[in-house]
Write a protein that binds this DNA or RNA. Structure first.
Ligand code: SF4
Ligand code: SF4
Lengths: 141, 141
DNA sequence: TTTATATGATACTAATTGGTATCATTTAAA
DNA sequence: TTTAAATGATACCAATTAGTATCATATAAA
């Protein structure tokens, strides 16, 4: 939603792949199912592999599979793999360093949203998504 | 925070300018006070002027001032002037069209964050910021 | 052993966003 | 009336992100 495209792609890919944890998914298949440009997906899978989210099997009949336990991959992990979504860039007005002596009113107001966002991302794992969504995703149009 | 730089700049500019509603602020002064690149700010002021947020007085001793009542400019108005922050791009996974027959679990979970965010942006006006923050901002380092 | 099908690596191109430069125009004040 | 200080318009440049192309490598199966 507020993420960049690569993050959105990655969220889709890993969610989808977690539906069959041990299955090998080929890039062309993922690209097709998830409507992600093939070559861009290839590049991204490469990174995800290096980062340890997935492992790849080369050669004919090769593909990718999730490399860790689903409970060990939170949505925050995924988001942080592709963009900097840190709690540190917290100024509503985008100041690197707060120019005020005390907090402005947006600081706390927005802080609530920020905290809730992080809580959701941090506590939701691929396992949760799998459990909650499998039926839905499997019946996708 | 999750906004692009232009949005952050604009939030700073208009918040700052609302501290003295009727004062004329020059571009160089704003650039200096708010740490925004002068020429970029100039371009942005131009747009804000065309969009009706501010009005400009040309010539020597000229400058910019807020063009509307502070209560009539919400943070959502400002954000929407510089980026597309619509409720419509609401899919957590970035799908343009939802591929599912029913909602996935993130839809509602994230919806709460989204709704709260919009509520804050929509209900907070420059007048609110002025009232809440003036003392703080005026005592900026 | 050859071929087809898969990923690895990396360079290149395109689009978007952020930032600069230049010159014209306006207007208060010297 | 001239000058200096301000904005208007717009073209240009730089950085980042998104997307494409190419060739190398691995491997199952014909
Ligand atoms: S107090 Fe306000 S200006 Fe300072 S860091 Fe927080 S949001 Fe930004
Ligand atoms: S239900 Fe899930 S996949 Fe569909 S639009 Fe909502 S968040 Fe996106």
């Amino acid at each position: 939603m507020n993420f960049n495209k690569t993050t959105e792609y990655t969220l889709r890919i890993l969610s989808f792949m977690s539906l069959n944890e041990n299955m090998l998914y080929s890039a062309i298949d993922l690209s097709d199912k998830l409507k992600i440009p093939y070559r861009y997906l290839r590049k991204q899978m490469n990174l995800l592999s290096k980062q340890g989210f997935i492992e790849s099997i080369q050669g004919k009949q090769g593909g990718y599979k999730i490399a860790k336990s689903l409970t060990d991959i939170s949505l925050l992990d995924i988001v942080n793999a592709t963009e900097n979504y840190s709690k540190e860039n917290m100024c509503f007005f985008g100041f690197q360093e707060c120019p005020l002596q005390n907090h402005c009113s947006m600081h706390d107001k927005w802080g609530e949203v920020r905290d809730k966002t992080f809580a959701i991302l941090k506590t939701t794992t691929l396992q949760d998504l799998k459990q909650d969504n499998s039926a839905l995703i499997l019946t996708s149009k």
